[in-house]
Every structure is written in C-alpha cells, then in structure tokens.
Simulated scan of single mutants.
Amino acid sequence: MPGELVPDRGKLRASHEDRDRAVERLRIAAGDGRLNADELDERLEAALTARTYGELEALLTDLPAEAEPATTTTKDISRIAVNSATARREGPWTVPQRLEIQCASGSVHLDFTTAVITLPTLEIDASVHSGSVTLVVPPDVHVDLDDVSVSSASVKNRARATTPQVRLRVHVTGEAHQSSITVRHPRRTFWQWLLRRPIPAASQLA
C-alpha cells in the first residue's frame, strides 16, 4: 500500500537456518586463515545468539563474499596424489564428475558438507597404501564402498543417507592395502553440542 513502511532488513528476526549459514561461513573463514581461534570462538558465540539479520551481518562484513555456485565450472576429472603428506578439500570446493586418488603413507580428507555439488554422481577411483582417506558427508549424500578391494585394511561407512532425496551419490572403487577408508557424518561443533542443536545439512550461503 502507498505510504506503507518497509521494515529495515537488519532489524528482521533471524532463523535457525540463518544462524547456521553464518556459523558455517565463519568456520570456512577460519579454515582459510582469516580468523584466529579466539576471533572464531567470539564470533561463533555471537552468531548462535544473534536475534536479527543485522547482528549476523555485522559478524561477516570484513569477510569476502561467498562465491556463487552458478558461476562455478565443474571439472570432469580431478586428481589428488599424496606421499607422506596430507591433502584436504573442505569449504565450498567444487565436486568433479570423477576423482582419482593416489595416497601412499599420507592422508586425504574430503568434506562435502558445504561443497558445491552440480552433478548427481561422483566416481572416485582410490589407490590407498599405508594411508587413509576420510569422506565427511551430510545426510543427503550416499556413498557406496562395495567395490573397493581390501587387503589388510579397514573400509567403513558410518554415514548412511537419511533424507528422502539424495543430492549426491558417490561410488568408490579401487584398492586399500594396509590403510583405511572411512565415511562419516560431520561432527558437532562445540556450540552445537552445548545448545543441543542438530548438525545442519549442507546448504549454500546466500
């Protein structure tokens, strides 16, 4: 209606989902080295108790804007090779169509919690010798380990898809020798545990 006042967005009440998105963005910033441990703890506490959009936005103003998934190009094949080293993919990394992993006496950590997923399936060909591969997946990602050849190794899937609609299916093939391949759900943050909040499903920040 003419003359009707439009409420200031900063004064609108924030939802649990809004707080979760802000928390994840802060976590990614800390992982990139933009926030130290004390700054992260202080902002996490403020984010989890924020009442309005304005309070949340004040915690993110000095952080880079998040990349838009729509402008991200998906690679057909990506390769990770480690030898007595560690490789990590976490935050808003782009999931390829196929991923080849060579791991010898090292570790590979793939976190799909806030990954950019543009395809319905991911094929992983893994060769793991005296090393470890860990996949951290939200409830809407399904992982199949049945076609991995195992020799004196541990291959465990502790995360089963629990949502009606699966967003990504991951099929792992290859071999594991004197090593481990583990699939698990994200662990609760300290503040989620303290407030007895559920682990959020993967979502893209606006």
Results as ranks from 00 to 15, higher is better:
51 R>F: 12
80 I>K: 00
160 R>K: 05
163 T>C: 10
167 R>M: 13
48 L>I: 01
29 A>W: 13
121 T>I: 00
156 K>T: 13
37 A>G: 04
98 R>I: 07
64 P>W: 01
113 T>R: 08
78 S>L: 09
24 E>D: 07
147 D>S: 11
153 A>W: 00
25 R>W: 07
36 N>L: 07
168 L>F: 00
169 R>L: 05
67 A>W: 04
173 T>Q: 06
45 E>V: 13
55 E>Y: 01
170 V>T: 02
20 D>P: 05
11 K>A: 15
109 H>Q: 03
60 L>E: 04
44 L>I: 07
112 F>R: 06
28 I>K: 10
133 V>F: 14
101 I>H: 00
92 P>E: 04
128 V>D: 12
17 E>K: 10
54 G>W: 00
118 T>L: 14
168 L>I: 10
27 R>K: 07
31 G>M: 03
182 T>S: 09
76 D>Y: 02
55 E>Q: 15
135 L>W: 01
17 E>L: 15
27 R>H: 10
61 T>R: 02
91 G>S: 12
7 P>G: 13
2 P>C: 13
60 L>K: 03
89 R>E: 05
158 R>Q: 10
61 T>E: 11
94 T>W: 03
138 P>D: 08
6 V>I: 14
113 T>A: 03
16 H>A: 15
130 S>G: 02
148 V>A: 09
39 E>A: 14
87 A>D: 01
73 T>L: 15
180 S>R: 12
179 S>Q: 04
73 T>S: 13
78 S>E: 15
59 L>Y: 09
51 R>S: 11
86 T>W: 14
139 P>L: 13
162 T>W: 00
74 T>W: 01
50 A>C: 14
21 R>T: 00
137 V>C: 09
54 G>Q: 00
56 L>F: 11
45 E>Q: 13
152 S>C: 10
56 L>C: 08
115 A>Q: 02
156 K>Y: 13
2 P>Q: 08
182 T>G: 15
76 D>T: 08
50 A>D: 01
83 N>I: 09
79 R>G: 09
192 Q>C: 11
151 S>L: 08
67 A>K: 08
163 T>G: 07
178 Q>V: 07
